[in-house]
Every structure is written in C-alpha cells, then in structure tokens.
Design a protein around this nucleic acid. Structure first.
Lengths: 349, 349
DNA sequence: TTGTACGCGTTATCAG
DNA sequence: CTGATAACGCGTACAA
C-alpha cells in the first residue's frame, strides 16, 4: 500500500539537520539563505518527493493564487474562447482558475459566488446570468475588497471594472450597413434587454433606423434566448407577415439564431440576400459555413479573457489600480459577407 | 475602509458564550448538537457575516472538494460540452473544478499536473495532449492514491479508469456505410496515431476496407492537426491526384477538417456526394450547417463529462470503487446526412 | 545566515 | 450534548 503521510518541510529539515523555517525560506527563494543550503534544500526536496501544500501556505499568506470565473454557460464558442484566453493569461502569471456556470440562473450565480468566496479566490471574473437583477450576491467580495471584474455581460458598480465591447456602436454600424445596402424594413432578433449586451445592440439598431428616418414597429423586435430553435421560430414569425409587409433584412443579436433563421427561410424558398438580407453577431464558426456567408461582428473572446485576467492580476500585484478606470472597451469589427450584400447580389443578375 | 479581519468560528463562539468546537459542529450539521444551539449558531453566523474558510478546513480534513481538469484545449465545441457536463455534475455534489489546458504540449501538461497536485485536488480528470508519450508526470497522484480519470484521449494504467467511446467501432461503421453507398476509393484524414482516438479511428477505417476487400494506399491516409487549414490543405492534396485515381469518399477524424475540405472542393467545382462523399466525426454545430449536411458520429460531451465526474465522486465518497473497472464506454451514434448519401443523390437525377 | 516560537482557521479526539 | 486542546503544514517576526 502507498505511504500515506505527506512529505513536509519538517521532513526535509530533519533530513538535513536544519530548521523548518530555513527550508521554507529556501524553497521560496528567500535571498536571506545561503546558496549552499538552498541547493541542499532543493535537492533533498526532490529526493524525498516533497510537494508544497498550497493551502497550508494560503492559510498563512492569505493569498491563494486562484481566480474565480463565473459564466452563464460554458458551452458556447464565444465563452470557451474567453476561457481559453483567461487560462493562458492566468497560467502565465502563476494563477489558477476555478470555473463555474450559472446556467443563466441568478440563484446558481449566487450560490457559486458564495463557494468561490469561501475558497478565498484572490479575485472574481464574472459574466452575468440572463436574469440577474442586482449585485447583492457579490457584496462579500466588495466588503472584503476582493477585486471583481465584469466582462461581456456587465453591470457597473463603483468598486469594480468592466471589460466590454461597444455593442451600441457595433449594432449601429451593422444596421447602417444594411440600410446602405438598400434595406428599409429591418427586423431585430434580440435577447433580454436587462443585459447590457442585448440592450445596447437593440438601441444601436434603433438609433440607426431613426437617423435614417426609417420606421420601426414592435413586431420587428423579437426577444428570445437566441437559440437554434429561436432562430427557426423567428423564421416562422417572418413567414407570418403578409408578403407586402415582410421585412427585407434581419439583424440578429447572435449568429446562431441568424443561421437557423436563414436556413428555415431558405428552405421556404427565400433568396438571401435578394429577398431578405441577414446580419448576425459574434463571428461564430457557423457564420463562415452557412451559404451565403453571414455578415457579422467579430470580437475576440481570447482578447477579452486575456484583458480581464491581466488587469486583475496587475491590480493584485499592485502594478496598477483597477478602480482608476470604469471600463475597458475592446475593438469589435464589422465583417461584411455575402448575406448582406444586396448591391453586389443585385448587380450580378 | 473595509473591516479587514476575517469573521471566524471563534467570533461566533464568543458571541454565544459557547466553544468553537460546538460552532464547528453546528455549522457542519453534526447530529451531536442540539437543535436549539444549532439554530442559534446559524443565526449568529448570518448576523456576523461569517463565511467559512475552505482551506483552513481542507488543511485539517485533508479534502478540498475540488477536482482538477486538464484538457488539451478549452476552445473546441466538444471540450466545452464536456466541461459543461463536468461542472454540472460536480456542482450537484458540492465539488468545484480547477481547469487548465495543456495547449497540446506535454510540457504544459506536466506543469499543470504539478500545480493541481500542490493544490491537493481530490481527484484529477485528464484528456491527454497531442504529444504526451508517458504518464510519469502523474506519478505523484498514483503514489498518493489520488484517483485519476482519463477521458476521450486516454492511456490505460493500472490504477485509474478511462471514459471513452468505441472509436474503432464508430469508424468501422461509418466507413462501411460509405462502402455501402458505393464508394471504393476512400481516403482518411486523421490525427496523430499516438492518441487512442485517432489510432482507433484509423484502424476501424482500415479494417472496414479490408473486410470489404478494398484497396488502401498510404497516400490515402493524411495525418494532420485536423484544423480548418488542414482541411483546406487536404482538399489541395485531393486535387493533386490525377482525375482517374481520385478518391470517391473522405472519412475525416473530425468535422472541422471535413467541412473545410468540402468547402474547398465545392469551390473547385466538385459535387458532393456525387463526385466525392464525405463523413466526419463529432457532430459539431457546423456539420448541420454545411451543404450538404455532413454525415458524422455523434457522442455527447456532456454525458462524457458527467460520467467521468460522477464516477470519480462516487469513488471518493466510497460509494463505488473506480479500480474495479478498466474503462467505461459510452454510446456513439452514426448520424447519416446528405454528404454521404450517394444512392439517394444518384436516384434524384 | 539561521533558529525559535507562534499563529493562520478549522476539525478530530478525548473527556466530561 | 458540549468543552478543551492538539494538530494540519506553512510563513514570519524576532532573536541569535
């Protein structure tokens, strides 16, 4: 059977006839220990198979080198890019990630926030659930001055920072592009306007219509969870309009709903973009596969994750102060593809 | 400024004039504490804003309720489904996940395994990197009897378990299906055969050819990283064959390479499946968007993640014994779509 | 440069 | 049912 006692710094100390304190110092590269002893210590550690006990250390030093990450769902292309970026940045600085998902429910978010606090994460990175309506569940963090970084789905708060893109501007631009292509009756398939990302996308769209003196009707604004099924359902909604009153373009708040809406309409005989143009959001892999390719907004999840973590860690290390800024806005790029190119499609005939 | 001392069980004890031991018992729902005191304790804890310190507890109890997850990459559709399934199962049992990625490099895998050991995870879930050639880096876990569960990309080891699908059988079936559709010159775009998943898929393909007395040539087996670019490159490889010797079907070890290969060939004027049939692996979202839809193998990442975690936790709780089994094989289903339906495609004309 | 002594917050043990 | 006390493994002020 396996030897089941931990190898501790005491074992090393005994082995070398020195004190545990010196061993501790030696292992932590404390300059106040002679080169010779340090060498003996590392060798003995190696030989005895010593592995430091991180949380005994954490208990003493009050720092865990662990960050909590709380997201709505783990399994979306965007979110997994964010996590990849976060993990890379964290690893680079010697930090680890505890990751949990709220499954879009405020209740889970609260409970996960609690466990992360109990695990004494050094900082929290959070993207809010669909129906989170306040930040009470983060009070323990605020009270103990544990830095909180919001990303993507954010809510402003005095002692925290947000990493976002300008959703309003991106939506404004993509809607203007559709208008520029000759579209006049533009629908919007959006998400819950309680969340900044969906609210801002809707408002950018709305303002673009206004600025071009184009009409808007409530029937043109669908609020959904933006799933595959919601995309298909939106297509049926569109088929429900009398032909003369049908939209000539759709701007979707994500690519999934856009693609599934397109597929259903194509199956119903619509030509895209001639009969109805499309634009999405996220530059998801499927946007490059659907025919015609989908016009969309590209923003890098990796960059967002990396930025969020790097700023958090710099703050923890005292290199910078998070709270001197309210938010960091990352670049988002309009990617124009065939699904919205009416002019070209028209001239081809 | 924020009050910066932790609220401990001693504060609660003092507040109620009882001992810290009782408080600890009360908070842990130890039956050996009267209903009345328990109630007073929870109330006081609430009132004083007490939050338990998990790693002080871990230090004493030698259990962290944390599992380590080590994957090649976080940002693939399959892997994020696995993680979602793992997180759900872990959360349900009161466990947390520390997640890291090896970025397909053995060196990173080793380093991450070390930190996870140092954080004293109660168990490790691992899917091996592209070039990992032995399990030396997991020795600390084996020596201390910390359970290790391999999933998807596995390597058998006496004291551990694997959660997999039958890649050989799935590949055999999908290749047989292509043959059944009339394909005779079938290529395989695969991954590094050092990894079980790619080795088994290749061998299943190989055996299906043999069993149907079909020829095989080395030029028909491409080993790549299965990326989008690799898919496109494979298309060029195919275009390099003289027309008479061109393959009439391609079986790819993942959907990404299949889809990008298809797109390039379509652009070059090939008809799919008439000129060349396609099959992939994974049932990635893009497989349902490409035209024609891609025949593929579906297996649930969520189920795999859930199974791996649930078995691990049951073992930790002593409900079952991991080591009584070598591996758990999950179901994988052949999903037949238009990209391989030559017979139908032919009869349509 | 090294050693002594104590504390971090919790739980296990043993007594009562 | 409750209390006193030691122990988990490590870091650090202070002294030497």
């Amino acid at each position: 059977m396996a030897e089941n006692r931990e190898v501790t710094i005491y074992d090393i100390a005994r082995h070398l006839n020195i004190s545990a304190a010196t061993v501790s110092r030696g292992l932590n590269n404390n300059p106040a220990v002679s080169k010779n002893t340090r060498k003996k210590i590392t060798e003995a550690a190696q030989k005895l198979g010593y592995q430091s006990n991180t949380f005994a250390s954490s208990l003493r030093s009050k720092s865990t080198h662990t960050l909590g990450v709380l997201v709505p769902r783990l399994n979306s292309h965007f979110m997994s890019s964010v996590l990849a970026g976060m993990e890379k940045a964290a690893n680079k600085h010697g930090y680890n990630l505890i990751i949990a998902q709220s499954l879009e429910e405020a209740e889970n978010e609260k409970q996960n926030a609690d466990t992360m606090f109990n695990k004494r994460v050094d900082g929290l990175l959070i993207s809010l659930a669909y129906d989170t309506s306040n930040l009470n569940h983060l009070e323990p963090f605020f009270k103990r001055n544990i830095p909180v970084v919001f990303f993507d789905r954010v809510q402003s708060h005095t002692s925290s920072i947000s990493v976002v893109i300008n959703n309003y501007e991106a939506a404004y631009k993509i809607t203007s592009h559709l208008i520029d292509q000759g579209c006049r009756r533009i629908m919007h398939i959006g998400g819950n306007v309680l969340r900044n990302v969906y609210k801002d996308r809707f408002e950018g769209y709305r303002q673009a219509l206004k600025d071009h003196d184009l009409p808007f009707q409530e029937k043109w604004h669908l609020v959904t969870a933006l799933s595959e099924e919601d995309g298909t359902a939106a297509a049926n909604h569109i088929l429900g309009f009398p032909a003369s009153k049908r939209p000539d373009a759709v701007f979707c708040a994500n690519d999934t709903s856009a693609v599934y809406c397109m597929m259903a309409l194509k199956a119903a005989g619509f030509r895209i973009p001639e009969d109805i143009a499309f634009a999405g959001f996220n530059n998801d892999p499927i946007s490059k596969v659907i025919e015609p390719n989908l016009t969309t907004v590209d923003y890098s999840g990796e960059t967002m994750g990396n930025t969020a973590v790097t700023n958090l860690i710099n703050h923890l290390k005292g290199i910078s102060n998070l709270y001197s800024t309210n938010s960091i806005t990352l670049r988002a790029n309009l990617i124009i593809r065939a699904s919205s190119l009416k002019k070209v499609a028209g001239s081809k005939k």
